[in-house]
Amino acid sequence: MTLSIQEVQHVALLARLNLGEEEKEKYAEQLGSILQYADKLNELDTEGVEPLDHILPVFNVFREDKVIPGPDREEILANAPLVEEGQYKVPKII
C-alpha cells in the first residue's frame, strides 16, 4: 500500500511541511507501509470499547484564579527570530 502523491501533498500542507518531489515519494511509500501495519488493528473487534483518551483516573485538576505576573517582555522575546515594537514580526499573511 502506498499513499498517492496528492494525499501526501495534502497532509504536508496541513502539517506545514515543504516537501521535495523525492521526499513526497519516499513518504508516500513509508506512510503507506506504516498504515498497512496499522491496519492490523482491524483484526480486533472494538465494538463497544470505550476509547482510552486519559489514562489516569483523575478529574477536575484546577488552579486558583490568581494573577502571577509573567517574566519581562525582553526575556520572552529574547529567543524570537524577528521583533519589532515589542511584537513578533512575521511576513504578510497572504
Binding site: V67, I68, P69, G70, I76, G86
Partner: peptide, 24 residues
C-alpha cells in the same frame, strides 16, 4: 471576566502594552 487567564496565571486585563501580559 476572571482575574487570570484560562490556562496560566497571566492577568486577564484589557489594554496593556503588547506582549506584557504574557508568560511561556
Amino acid at each position: 471576566k476572571t482575574r487570570s487567564k484560562i490556562f496560566c496565571s497571566c492577568t486577564n486585563e484589557f489594554g496593556a502594552k503588547p506582549n506584557t501580559n504574557v508568560c511561556p
